[in-house]
Simulated assay, not measured.
Amino acid sequence: MDNVRRQFIKGGTALVAATSLYLLHDAGAEDTPQGKVRYALLHDETKCIGCNACAEACRHTNQVPEGVARLRIERSGPYGEFPEQYYRFSRVSCQQCEQAPCVNVCPTGAAYIDDKTGIVSVNSWKCVGCQYCIAACPYHIRFINPLTHSADKCDFCKETNLRDGKQPACVEACPTGALMFGDLEDPHSNIVAALNTQPVYRTKEDLGTHPKLFRIRAKAGGITL
């Protein structure tokens, strides 16, 4: 396999561009076959305390080795003036793009969007380690797993908790309820209700990637992305 990887990497380079229009609550709905789901995650920054319980649960559940991470929480700030200063805790993980550059550039099909769940996933046995997906990801969250030697990232615990009928490990571990997971195709789901009633934002929307990681801003204004 190492020889195959080395021979493939010598093959050349790849470029990707993906742009299209996107509506917050209806994106992809017309193209989603009946009976399939479209999972998304909401991070409520007003509830996040930066405890990293989510990141530790992710590492344990998905057996992510030390030195790399599928999920991390970044702290920025302080913002404002004392005594009204505050910090912002931001989730850094796969954005689960509906127009995923990583999938577009993968030459072997190792990076793919799962037909049944809409989750951007990785078939490690197909990955040749070319790192095209890592270069193409505008969110800089993919990495090479030092144990599998393949590209890796958050997949909403598709092969672990989700497969067993549970919520993603990060959602289950959050002590403040800052994370909400659900199906955008289910009009009765909690996440759809939240998206329809609260102001949310997503990072780098202008790239046309259509991320399915939504966020509730910690404070109104004051932060420029």
Rank of each mutant, 00 (worst) to 15 (best):
G109S: 07
Q85V: 11
F156S: 02
Y79W: 03
Q95G: 03
A55N: 05
A40H: 00
G67R: 07
V105I: 13
K153E: 05
G50D: 06
A14Q: 07
N62A: 04
L71I: 12
T13E: 15
V37M: 13
D2V: 08
W125H: 09
T203S: 09
P138G: 10
S20F: 05
S189K: 01
Q198L: 10
R142K: 11
N196V: 02
A193E: 12
D186R: 03
C106L: 06
L42M: 05
P65W: 01
V122A: 05
Y86I: 09
C48Q: 10
A40W: 04
G50F: 05
R163L: 12
A40V: 10
S93D: 15
R59D: 05
F181Y: 09
R163W: 03
A173N: 04
C48D: 12
C58E: 00
N104T: 12
Q96G: 07
G165K: 02
C154M: 02
V64Y: 01
R75T: 13
T19A: 10
E159P: 00
L213D: 01
V122S: 02
R215C: 04
A111Q: 12
S93F: 14
L179K: 08
Y132G: 03
G222D: 13
I73L: 06
V122H: 00
S93W: 15
R217S: 04
L41K: 01
Q131R: 09
R38P: 02
H210V: 07
Q34G: 12
T32P: 04
H149W: 00
S93K: 11
N161Q: 11
N190L: 15
C157V: 02
Q95N: 14
V120L: 10
T61V: 13
A173E: 11
A29K: 13
F181K: 02
T224I: 14
P101L: 04
P33I: 03
L23A: 12
L23K: 08
H210W: 09
R88M: 11
P107Y: 00
I49L: 09
N62Q: 06
C54R: 05
E159K: 04
N104C: 12
L179F: 10
A111F: 10
L23H: 15
P101A: 03
Y79Q: 04
K219L: 06
G12S: 14
E172D: 11
S90A: 15
R59Q: 12
A135E: 14
H188A: 15
R217E: 14
R142H: 09
I119R: 05
F82N: 14
L162I: 06
D26M: 05
C54V: 07
A17D: 10
C157M: 02
V68E: 01
Q34F: 14
Y87R: 12
K116L: 11
P33E: 07
C48K: 14
G109V: 02
K153T: 09
L147W: 11
P146W: 01
G50E: 01
G208Y: 00
V37K: 13
K212C: 13
Y112I: 02
H43G: 10
G177H: 05
